[in-house]
Computed example of a mutant assay.
Amino acid sequence: MSSPPFIDQASGELDLGQIRAEAFRLAGLVLLFGGIALLLFLLTLLVGPGRLLAGFLTVLSQFVLAVGTGIVLMYVIARGIQLADE
């Protein structure tokens, strides 16, 4: 029988290295999509309110956040399945 994910087999304690590695990967994805959405939002502020381009950039930043959320959730599920099979 395999050990549960994030548990060191030798000591039975939490494997902080593996937890840190997974957290950095997940944080990288969140920062990627959050950064893109923030950039689009800042461009919206530079364009000014009431312009058609500002509306388009707002919708685009919301789309980036929605797609990014979906990708992060898919990553978490896929990685969880991978860790459960190891």
Results as ranks from 00 to 15, higher is better:
M1A: 10
M1Q: 06
M1H: 09
S2P: 15
S2E: 10
S2I: 14
S3G: 11
S3Y: 12
S3L: 14
S3D: 10
S3K: 09
P5W: 06
F6Y: 15
F6A: 04
I7P: 07
D8W: 01
D8K: 05
D8F: 01
D8G: 01
D8I: 01
Q9G: 05
S11M: 02
S11H: 02
S11C: 02
G12W: 00
E13F: 11
L14E: 08
L14G: 01
D15V: 06
D15R: 06
D15N: 15
G17C: 00
Q18M: 12
Q18F: 07
I19H: 02
I19K: 05
I19G: 03
R20I: 01
R20C: 05
R20G: 01
R20T: 11
A21E: 11
A21Y: 10
A23H: 10
A23T: 13
A23Q: 12
F24E: 08
F24T: 05
R25A: 11
R25G: 07
R25T: 11
R25C: 05
R25P: 00
R25L: 12
R25F: 01
L26T: 15
A27G: 14
A27Y: 07
G28M: 06
V30Q: 09
V30C: 07
F33K: 03
G34E: 06
G34Y: 04
I36M: 14
I36Y: 05
I36R: 02
L38I: 02
L40S: 04
F41M: 04
F41A: 12
L42T: 02
T44M: 14
L46C: 06
V47K: 09
V47P: 00
G48H: 07
P49L: 04
P49V: 04
G50C: 08
G50L: 08
G50K: 06
G50E: 08
L52K: 10
L52D: 15
L52G: 08
L53M: 13
L53V: 15
L53C: 05
A54R: 05
A54C: 04
G55E: 13
F56Y: 10
L57Q: 09
L57V: 07
T58D: 09
T58Q: 10
V59T: 11
V59E: 13
V59H: 07
L60T: 15
S61H: 12
Q62W: 09
Q62F: 13
F63T: 15
F63E: 09
F63M: 14
F63K: 09
V64A: 13
A66K: 08
V67T: 11
V67P: 07
G68K: 03
T69R: 01
V72A: 09
V72H: 01
V72Q: 00
L73D: 00
Y75Q: 08
V76K: 04
V76W: 10
I77T: 04
I77H: 07
I77V: 14
I77E: 03
I77K: 08
A78W: 02
A78K: 10
G80K: 04
G80V: 02
G80C: 03
I81R: 15
I81C: 00
I81W: 09
I81Q: 11
L83T: 02
L83I: 05
A84E: 11
A84I: 00
A84H: 10
D85A: 14
E86I: 04
E86W: 01
